[in-house]
Design a protein around this nucleic acid. Structure first.
Lengths: 315, 315
DNA sequence: TCACAGGTGAAAGGTATTTTCGTCGCGGGT
DNA sequence: ACCCGCGACGAAAATACCTTTCACCTGTGA
């Protein structure tokens, strides 16, 4: 299926790129709901929320029952189940039963209230920690291993890797580029959209472009990715919206998790945690596959930094 | 049939005494099978045993499927489900799914080893996630609230905040500065040690300088902090070594946690996670204390970014 | 205001589950 | 040995449940 007639910029992402979009596991359901909710219609959101709020109760209901309880129709319930990655309601129900059993036995119901203005610092720390830990678990649970695998393979053998990210994501992009540089790969992070595009058009088949955007519709990041895509590079999207515009130009999509946010807890926080986990996975994967060169490179760069530390207390 | 002549000892237990004969719990299924097995017919025993041996597998089967797998009929399967205390097969199946999820999650905690070169990607993700979660818990547990409190107070009323970090820590420094800017504070991140020092000497009492260094002995970060300290600014150190040199010039010390590291997992990874949690706590704390100005500022900056996203799908 | 796109639910269409009912095998009595 | 009755068992009918289709309706942009 590789039709590398790179003559025109009209390369299109192959439609059946998601034969098995999501292996539906029970644990990460709440996360999935949060990830997909924005791209759902109102009725479907109602269903999804009901289901996430009371898995045990909903597992006991039939399609009709759940439709009634949410004030919607059976069709909508089935549609929601599909959106969450299950073949139909029956399977969602099974997963729900699993989830219910898990949280029944797994003690901690993990109820996190939102952070409010007058929370004492102790609570802030506790809630923040709890949330970030949850985000990590969710992200790991929702990660599509085959996509990671594919991205890692492409990166490991890439001539050059470009990473795009603006705003908070730019820090993540830089982090990834820094790490890749340290194991001897050619990687650049671009935060300036103009420079990003001008660099992107230099890419060709065998190169890799990675876009990092939580919303999935940050134009400053989509444009360079599209340019890279059109020029035949392998493209990867790290995004919280697997249905976002950015994925149109991505050969591989890595979904980051979305945590509930509030006024005091801006989007940047949990999405950043999620993104960092994903890029760390990419990094380790690449390091494994290029171990021959990566290991000595890591050692060298470590030693190069040693003299920048004050000499004493070298334990 | 003789009805209610209760005078003799032949009183009969009222028939509807067991409207709910058995509350079907998921966990005790195996036990229930053993209890009931003797009073079952051969075919039913086959079904019960199959079910107890492989809950996960059976949960995926329909009545017909399970009947086939056990070499029996659908009716027998349903009868078995009844015998085990469920209203029908559907409910048994639900319980099975729950049981499967339970024992799946119970079997999980087998990840303590280090990441090695030949770990499959699945393990890498699991280990990485586990480690980062542990790091978060450790950091939160080790954080000295009074120090956080003090740092937050100083920051909230600061005329200006400078943040120093080089290498991986520079990204953390930038993250903090970015966030503080978004709530209307005057904050700068310095990665260039020369510029950092030249800026540090401009600070005075009422200003805040924050140094971020995992090792606690990164000279490029210590020098500007010392300069700020000498000029009367309030200084904060975010470090993994509370006994490190950097703390000599720090009014407040926030300790980050250190996870075990290995060749494939460079220091930057878990220390970064830890540092980010700490600065997030600082940020939220400051945002709370400056809520009057922070809230509208956050809203404004959010709106300012809206047009940088592609317009569609604004739900 | 109109045309249109897309969400939504009623009802038709299938599939899975439950019930019914007749057969068959087994043990005990004649 | 044969017959009788009891209960296990499964095929198929009956039902409940799930899925799909399609027309309506609502909100949106010209």
């Amino acid at each position: 299926m590789k039709e590398n007639f790179s003559r025109r910029g009209d390369r299109v992402r192959p439609a059946p790129a998601q034969p098995r979009p999501a292996p539906p596991e029970p644990g990460a359901l709440a996360a999935k709901v949060r990830t997909m909710a924005p791209s759902m219609t109102r009725s479907m959101q109602r269903v999804a929320e009901t289901v996430a709020a009371d898995p045990a109760g909903c597992a006991a209901l039939t399609v009709t029952g759940l439709a009634e309880r949410t004030g919607t129709s059976e069709a909508t319930v089935v549609r929601t189940a599909r959106m969450l990655g299950y073949p139909g309601y029956r399977d969602l129900r099974l997963a729900l039963a699993g989830l219910a059993a898990q949280q029944a036995s797994g003690a901690a119901p993990a109820i996190t209230t939102d952070i409010s203005v007058d929370d004492p610092l102790t609570d802030v720390i506790a809630k923040l920690t709890q949330d970030e830990r949850q985000t990590l678990a969710d992200t790991a649970g929702a990660l599509d291993i085959s996509q990671v695998e594919a991205a890692v393979s492409a990166m490991a053998s890439a001539r050059r890797i470009d990473v795009y990210g603006v705003g908070a994501s730019s820090l993540v992009a830089q982090d990834l580029a820094q790490k890749l540089l340290r194991i001897g790969l050619v990687a650049h992070a671009h935060a300036d959209p103009h420079l990003a595009v001008t660099n992107a058009v230099q890419l060709r088949a065998g190169d890799v472009a990675i876009a990092i955007t939580h919303s999935g519709r940050t134009v400053d990041v989509i444009e360079p990715l599209q340019a890279a895509f059109d020029h035949g590079a392998t493209t990867v999207a790290v995004t919280g919206r697997p249905d976002g515009e950015v994925t149109q130009y991505a050969d591989h999509v890595l979904t980051t998790s979305t945590a509930r946010e509030s006024e005091l807890r801006p989007a940047a926080m949990s999405s950043r945690t999620s993104q960092l986990l994903v890029i760390d996975c990419l990094f380790i994967g690449v390091a494994q596959r290029t171990y021959e060169t990566a290991a000595p490179a890591l050692r060298t760069s470590y030693e190069a930094l040693a003299h920048r530390h004050s000499p004493r207390d070298v334990r």
